[in-house]
Amino acid sequence: MNDTPDITWLLAAVSQGDQGAFERLYAATSAKLYGVVLRIVRRHELAAAVMEDAYLQIWNTAGDFNPGLSSALAWMVGLARRLAVDVSRQSSAAEGEPEVVEENEGPSAVPRHQLSDALKRLLTCIGRLEPDRQRMLLLAYYGAFSREQLAAKLDMPVDLLKDALRRSLIEVEQCLTT
């Protein structure tokens, strides 16, 4: 949290083409992004490739970041995650090195004072869902599993899962917008 303003400044400098700032931005954020990406693609080689693309895209589109809408890190994570999910879908059938992330599926605990207000709100809204659906949503986010994978993990029919996912998203959206 303390580094948030720095990252925002760095991103602003990067949007002006400052490579030095870009290097500092990478140093400040790469571990976080790598953690997110690796959880999704589950292989180091894929994760590294995603990271390359992600940071190039950050370099090219830093000017799109709007600090009024989200934190800089959340913006970067969102971008990297999108690329990671793309790769994970394409490569789901492909062969490769063994997966390095075991099924330690839950997110790590965060001390309460480190939670941002936005995250508190989101967690409050997710917390209003039934426990199974909370788990489903968080598992979906952190692992970016397809519905089939999720259904298998949660041991429920895909149709049911699809419906539950849909309702959960709508409920969370309603909760967040009221």
Partner: peptide, 20 residues
Amino acid sequence: ERRLGELHLMVEPIEPEPDL
């Protein structure tokens, strides 16, 4: 993306390879 983006706070950082 904005709504769910904050969930990243709960992901543990992992250092990528140094040559990345």
